[in-house]
């Protein structure tokens, strides 16, 4: 996960607390999305960024999982094409793993 994003998420978690905070991912691939979910949950597994050894315990959801929470027109406009192209089930399955 991008080191700058790690720093921003860490800062937001410190500012707003972990209880009312979720991370929304837009990764195009299962492994990378899972890695991001893992990073915000238990820490940076690559030990490269600010979340190395920092377990924020945040829950991450991929945008595909939040389809019902979003205006359908907006979803179609912003995500519709990628939903057609990417391996949605594989991505969701991988991201879910880190919320258990």
């Amino acid at each position: 996960m991008d080191l700058e994003n790690q720093a921003r998420i860490k800062e937001l978690a410190e500012k707003y607390g972990k209880d009312d905070l979720i991370v929304v991912l837009g990764g195009a691939e299962a492994e990378a999305s899972g890695l991001a979910a893992e990073t915000v949950a238990t820490g940076d597994p690559t030990f490269a960024g600010p979340l190395s050894g920092v377990s924020l315990g945040l829950k991450a959801y991929h945008m595909f999982e939040l389809k019902d929470q979003v205006d359908s027109e907006v979803y179609e406009e912003q995500v519709g094409m990628m939903e057609m192209v990417l391996n949605v089930d594989e991505i969701i399955e991988e991201v879910k793993t880190y919320r258990k």
């Binding site: 195009a28 691939e29 492994e31 519709g80 094409m81 990628m82 057609m84």
Partner: peptide, 29 residues
């Protein structure tokens, strides 16, 4: 490195755009 097949992802996006524009049948993407 977890970045997938970049050209293939682009091709699929172009194909999907064709489907949305009615120029490609979804089954032929």
């Amino acid at each position: 490195a977890g970045a997938g097949d970049v050209p293939l992802a682009n091709y699929k996006m172009i194909g999907a755009l064709g489907v949305k524009r009615g120029e490609i049948v979804r089954a032929d993407l």
